[in-house]
């Protein structure tokens, strides 16, 4: 009886060491890459990192791709126009969820007023216009020349 228990305990201990060692190894081998997004706050981001999109293409690829293919992406309404600059030193205060009336309204006030007149105050834009994506009514301007050749 005692020897089975002892074997079990030794086995458990051995497994724990292996698993623990595995995790320690992973942490050491991939110190920042394993979850690139989680530990990088914007204040760690390199000083010379130009636009938001290049890093967000890696950290939040879904949103970055959505934006790139959306109307805002085609028209180069870049991230900071709505979201500001994340280190807080920008002209626009940083916000992960922009305030609709002032931020969206800076360009889209006529359309927002038309919508409000037709359907009443909705309170937010992104219920129907999913963040960064095409509006529900039409496809965005479809990218017509998706190729990496420079001549036709």
């Amino acid at each position: 009886m005692a020897s089975v228990k002892k074997t079990l305990l030794i086995g458990l201990f051995f497994a724990a060491v292996c698993v623990g060692g595995f995790f320690v190894y992973i942490n050491a081998a991939f110190p920042t890459v394993r979850c690139e997004a989680a530990k990088v706050t914007h204040l760690n981001a390199p000083e010379d990192l130009s636009d938001c999109a290049s890093c967000h293409a890696k950290t939040t690829p879904r949103d970055a791709q959505d934006w790139k293919e959306s109307k805002h992406g085609v028209l180069l309404v870049k991230c900071f126009v709505c979201h500001g600059q994340p280190d807080g030193k920008g002209a626009i205060p940083f916000n992960a969820k922009p305030e609709y009336k002032t931020v969206c309204g800076a360009c889209h006030e006529p359309a927002m007023n038309r919508m409000a007149a037709k359907y009443g105050e909705v309170g937010d834009c992104h219920t129907c216009h999913p963040r960064h994506q095409n509006p529900i009514h039409r496809n965005a301007f479809e990218a017509k020349t998706v190729t990496d050749k420079t001549s036709f």
Partner: peptide, 11 residues
């Protein structure tokens, strides 16, 4: 970026 909406891009 202008060519993203082009039907024909002529270089």
């Amino acid at each position: 970026n202008t060519s993203r909406i082009a039907d024909v891009h002529v270089s």
